[in-house]
Simulated scan of single mutants.
Amino acid sequence: MGISRVPGSRRRAQAPSVGPLGRASGRYRRPMSTTPALDRPDAVIFDLDGTLVDTVERRIEAWLQAFQEAGIPATREAVSPLIGADGKALARRIAKEAGRSLDEEAVEATDRRSGEIYQALNVDPRPLPGARELAQALDRARIPWAIGTSSRREQVRASVDALRLAREPTIVDGSHVEHAKPEPDLLVMAASQLSVDPRQTWYVGDSTFDMQAAVAAGMYPIGVTTGSADVDALRGAGAAEVIGSLLELGRRIRRLAAPSANRA
């Protein structure tokens, strides 16, 4: 079963410069002001790990094993808050905290090894409550949606299959952009693939990096506490609202899909 993806040109969205795992900063393509609440979005973009599928613990375990193999001391407490960010930046951050400096080859090798371990662990991912139903509700409401994930392309398949979707989703993964979250590149490219204005789009994610990327892209950031970040962390990273699960969002979308809510 194939996935609807961005064409192989690896087109890159413009983005501001950002330090490793720092907030997106600098001037973006359009002025970024406080994003207003949207009663009905033109589109919804989702993170994958920890948002649609319950894979965060496996991500953490994969990183811990990869760092152990590389001889880099790492703890669950250090790795957990960084899940959802660009993998290379995560590798640099943990190495730096351990007093190690990694060259680009070592960074790439550590990131890739973490992905290989994750793929071996992620054999039976479980959809998070409400994920599949939310996708169905969006389709019924005729609201386009996509997945924007920092994961490498080869790491996405098992999790998407676990959702058992009625149709193939549009996915922008980490292989399509030079800079993953917290840069907004993934999100802006996903909006472009859906032919929607980022400012009229919801972005739903479970990590602080998701929220930072959404703010930088001018989207309406919705945090969900099904990953490793709590309410305060998500709010502090820019979440306009925080929900406990996708079940809450599904109820909202179903109301939009009701006959009385349909727009001509």
Rank of each mutant, 00 (worst) to 15 (best):
Q68H: 10
E116V: 11
V79E: 01
P73S: 11
V79L: 11
A78F: 02
A98Y: 00
R142K: 10
P129L: 08
R100E: 06
A137R: 01
S114F: 09
A141R: 03
P125I: 08
G84D: 07
I117F: 14
G115T: 14
Q68K: 08
A141E: 00
S151Q: 09
A89I: 00
T149F: 01
I72G: 06
G87I: 01
A98L: 04
W145Q: 01
E77F: 00
E116D: 15
R92C: 08
A120S: 15
G99R: 05
A66F: 07
L90P: 08
R100N: 06
L134H: 01
A85G: 15
G115C: 13
N122L: 04
S150Q: 01
S150R: 00
E116L: 14
R100H: 08
P129E: 15
G148F: 02
R76C: 09
R112H: 12
I117Y: 10
R112W: 05
E133W: 02
A146M: 00
Y118S: 12
S101Y: 06
R112K: 11
A78S: 15
A91Q: 12
P125G: 11
G148T: 05
I117N: 10
L128S: 06
N122S: 07
E77C: 04
W145T: 02
R93T: 14
K88S: 13
V107L: 02
G115L: 12
G84K: 12
S150W: 01
A135F: 12
R112L: 13
A85D: 13
Y118R: 12
L138S: 03
P129S: 11
G99W: 07
R76P: 05
Q119H: 10
G115W: 14
P81D: 11
